[in-house]
Simulated scan of single mutants.
Amino acid sequence: MDENASQNLWATMVANDPEHSRRYAERWRRLASEGMDLDGEARLIDAMASRGSRILDAGCGTGRVGGYLARSGHQVTGVDLDEHLIEVANEDHPEADWYVADLESLDAEALATLGESEPFDLVFSAGNVFGFLSPSSRGDVLRHLRGLLRDGGRAVIGFGAGRGYDFADFVDDAGRAGFHCQGQFSSWQLDPFTDDADFLVAVLSR
C-alpha cells in the first residue's frame, strides 16, 4: 500500500510543526475580531435544519461553524482529532459539546463512548476536512457518517479542488457508502457546480 494512503495530512502537519494548530486557531480568532464574515457555511446548515436539530460537526476545528449553530438553537456535537483546536472550541463556543476524536475511526460505537448515542438529523464537514483524510479512510468515513444519521438525515460536505480528492471520486465514494447525492454546488452560497469548479459542496441524504 502507498504510505501516503494511510496518513492523515493534518496529523502529519502537526507532527512536523507542533505550533501549526496554535497559529491556525489564532488566525480564525483574528479574522473574527476584524469583523470578517465567517458564517457562510453555518447559515446554509441552519437553513437546512429544523430548529433544535441534532447536528454533528465532523472535523470541527475551532468550532466557528458549530458554535454559530448552537447559538441558533441547535444541539451541536463537534469532533476533531486536534486537542488544541478542541480546547479553543470549548473556550470560544461553550454552547456546544466538543470532543477529541479521530473522524477516520468515528463510528456509532466510538461516539457512544463519548456519551452521544442518539442519531443525528444532519452531519456536516466544512473547512476542507475531507482533503486532510488519509485516502484509505475516505470510504469508511462516509459509511460511518451515514450510519450516524437518522433515516432521512442529510450530510453536507465541502472541500476544495487540488487536495488529492477528485470531486467525481468523492461522489462515487458517497454512493458506495449508501448516500444519495441530492445536489452539488460550487460554494456555500449554492452557486451552480460546473466541470471547472474549484470547490464542491455536496448535499447527501441517507
Rank of each mutant, 00 (worst) to 15 (best):
G52Y: 03
A126W: 04
S136M: 09
G52F: 04
A15G: 13
E26T: 03
G61H: 03
A89E: 05
H180A: 12
L111I: 09
T62P: 10
D82N: 13
M36V: 08
R22G: 03
Y165H: 15
H20M: 06
D39N: 11
P192G: 06
T194E: 14
A108Y: 04
A15T: 14
R29Q: 13
G66F: 02
E91F: 00
G147N: 10
A47S: 15
A101N: 07
R22Y: 06
A177G: 08
V171N: 08
E116C: 13
E3T: 14
R154P: 01
E104M: 15
L44Y: 12
G178Q: 09
A155S: 10
P135H: 10
D2Q: 11
I157A: 07
D173P: 10
G78M: 10
A70I: 03
L204D: 04
P192I: 06
H93T: 02
A15S: 15
R29P: 00
T113A: 07
G131M: 10
V203N: 01
R206Y: 01
Q184V: 11
P135Q: 11
F185I: 01
D173N: 15
I86T: 01
A101Y: 07
M36N: 10
A110H: 05
L9W: 08
V14L: 14
M36I: 03
E41H: 09
L81M: 13
R43L: 04
G67F: 02
R29W: 00
G127C: 13
P94Y: 02
R54M: 09
R30V: 01
L38T: 02
E34P: 00
V14G: 09
L56D: 05
S117M: 02
W10F: 14
L200M: 01
V14T: 13
